[in-house]
């Protein structure tokens, strides 16, 4: 078998194999690239509400916290509470954090939920699992390198690396260098 046939065969099959991961990395890549403008993994829903009656900060025990949660129809499992200052009580329940001003009865709710699909994609892309996933991700990176190299030699002639391919490959090398020159 000629070397180009082997080259194209490897390129084709690795391309099929890498399809799923490439889509995950591409979508997650765009999502985390704009982390300054949005949270790519979680939706945070903030809302303000007010208790029917203000409370006294003294003696705000678990029972009182339970009654606050009941008034707000908050059924998430209670986790803990914290006083960041004498006038503010934070109540942590599963999926929600309530910041309560007992004196005024004002409450800020922050409901946090993972973005469907994106949360999982980012989890893999940002290598949160570590362990075996790190090795698999390394293997994927190696496959991408092989895909890039074999891709150069898929076609011969004017549309191959000797013609059009040289110009496009050159552009793909020069553009990152240009950005390095601009920003580095």
């Amino acid at each position: 078998m000629k070397w180009r046939r082997w080259n194209n065969l490897i390129h084709r099959d690795l391309g099929y194999f890498c399809f799923g991961l490439t889509i995950i990395y591409a979508v997650s890549g765009i999502a985390v690239n704009h982390i300054e403008s949005w949270n790519p993994s979680y939706t945070i829903e903030r809302s303000r509400t007010r208790l029917a009656e203000p409370l006294s900060s003294d003696g705000l025990d678990r029972e009182a916290i339970a009654s606050i949660l009941a008034e707000l129809d908050e059924n998430g499992a209670y986790k803990n509470s914290f006083w960041p200052d004498p006038d503010t009580l934070q109540i942590f329940v599963e999926g929600n954090t309530l910041t309560v001003n007992p004196g005024t009865g004002e409450i800020l709710q922050e409901k946090v939920s993972p973005r469907p699909v994106l949360h999982q994609m980012n989890y893999l892309h940002l290598n949160h699992p570590k362990k075996l996933w790190s090795w698999f991700a390394d293997l994927y990176a190696l496959f991408l390198g092989i895909l890039a190299i074999t891709g150069l030699f898929v076609l011969k002639g004017k549309k191959g690396i000797a013609g059009r391919g040289a110009w496009l490959s050159g552009a793909g090398i020069i553009l990152p260098l240009l950005f390095l020159w601009l920003y580095y």
Binding site: I44, K79, N80, V112
Partner: peptide, 8 residues
Amino acid sequence: PMSARGRT
């Protein structure tokens, strides 16, 4: 993770 809020 954000789910850590309220946990020890």
